[in-house]
Computed example of a mutant assay.
Amino acid sequence: MSSELFDALVILEKEKGISKDVIIEAIEAALISAYKRNFNQAQNVRVDLNLERGSMRVFARKDVVDEVYDPRLEISVEEAQTINPNFQLDDVVEIEVTPKDFGRIAAQTAKQVVTQRVREAERGVIYSEFSDREEDIMTGIVQRQDSRFIYVSLGKIEALLPQSEQMPNEQYKPHDRIKVYITKVEKTTKGPQIYVSRTHPGLLKRLFEKEVPEIYDGTVELKSVAREAGDRSKISVHSEYAEVDPVGSCVGPKGQRVQAVVNELKGEKIDIVRWSNDPVEFVANALSPSKVVDVIVDENEKATTVIVPDYQLSLAIGKRGQNARLAAKLTGWKIDIKSQSEAEQEGMVVKNSDDMLVSQHAFDSDEDME
């Protein structure tokens, strides 16, 4: 033992974030184990490790008793008082029993135990750091992949990006930098296990928080997200401040803010709509970019019938029903879409086209925002 070890522990504490006290405790436990194993001792012992002086001593701890049954663990009152006259019954006496060649044996035996303790402590530090970052995004670097996962380096640890959480329109190559959403942090026998996603709606939400200061500071609230990753998403936004345009805030000057999110998601279309607690207005907005003539609400069934101009029917429904499906997810309302002529045939009262409800905007490329 020497002061070099103390210096090494200081460096380890700075680089790994592991307390010196944790490592010293591990070393002391390892030395006790080494002493008992190599010297066939069943004594109750304590190790005194002084790193600054570079000294190491082993003390046997014995209970002071009237009658000794096990001399390895007990000492008589008379013998204890020869060491120190002040010892009384039930006191604990410490007697130094440091073997001459203990340093060499202890170093060999303790190495594996100390390494394991340091590894466990380091895993604990990593788990604590990443468990606080669940539902957050981080930038990682793609390392490699197999049939089940993409392995993404987050600095101190590799995260797992499962196949089901990978965007269908993306190809991942080693050294690619990607933003990922942390879905779960688990403790396992092999250390912390971190699962990440590129398809989770939370990724879209966090990206807008980073790009839109008004969302980050609470001026604009992102109320709901509906996403079909890699293809199209819808978000609803709201502001309590009349002078703030929540949709415009998310779009940004010349569309720069939303375009930054679109670029990160490799061209995924994003509809930004104004949230409303009025289901008529909210559902009409959610069907963007389609125009809506009327919305008939059934509160009991939490369902709506939406009437659109005949020429807007296919746009309202969307390719393979995607637009209507996302609108339903975004609003939480069932949506049945009918054309204006169909509604009139069924005897529904339909507004004039001049009273058409206002729709919002969709953004997926620079051309859409010009």
Results as ranks from 00 to 15, higher is better:
Val10Ser: 10
Ile23Glu: 03
Ile24Val: 14
Ile32Ala: 13
Arg37Thr: 12
Ala42Trp: 02
Gln43Gly: 15
Asn44Ala: 13
Arg46Met: 11
Arg46Lys: 15
Arg46His: 09
Glu52Arg: 13
Val64Arg: 07
Val64Asp: 10
Glu67Leu: 14
Pro71Gln: 13
Arg72Glu: 15
Leu73Thr: 10
Ser76Val: 07
Glu79Met: 02
Leu89Pro: 04
Asp90Arg: 13
Asp91Val: 06
Ile95Thr: 13
Thr98Asn: 08
Thr98Ala: 07
Pro99Thr: 11
Asp101Phe: 02
Asp101Lys: 12
Gly103Ile: 06
Thr109Lys: 04
Lys111Glu: 12
Arg117Trp: 03
Arg119Gln: 15
Glu120Met: 08
Val125Arg: 15
Ser128Gly: 14
Ser128His: 10
Glu134Leu: 07
Ile137Pro: 01
Tyr151Ser: 11
Ser153Arg: 09
Gly155Asn: 01
Glu158Met: 03
Glu158Thr: 15
Asn169Asp: 10
Tyr172Asp: 11
Asp176Ala: 13
Val180Glu: 05
Val185Cys: 09
Pro192Phe: 09
Gln193Ser: 11
Gln193Ala: 03
His200Ala: 14
His200Pro: 00
Arg206Thr: 02
Phe208Ile: 10
Glu214Lys: 10
Asp217Arg: 14
Lys223Ile: 13
Lys223Trp: 07
Val225Lys: 03
Glu228Arg: 04
Arg232Phe: 01
Val237Glu: 09
Val247Asn: 05
Val251Leu: 04
Gln256Gly: 00
Val261Lys: 08
Gly267Ile: 09
Gly267Ser: 05
Glu268Gly: 05
Arg274Trp: 01
Ala284His: 01
Ala286Val: 02
Ser290Tyr: 01
Val297Tyr: 04
Asn300Glu: 14
Thr305Gln: 09
Asp310Met: 09
Asp310Leu: 05
Ala316Glu: 08
Asn323Ile: 09
Arg325Cys: 02
Thr331Cys: 01
Val350Ile: 12
Val358Tyr: 01
Ser359Trp: 03
Gln360Asp: 15
His361Asn: 01
Phe363Val: 12
Asp364Lys: 12
Asp364Ser: 12
Asp366Cys: 00
Glu367Thr: 12
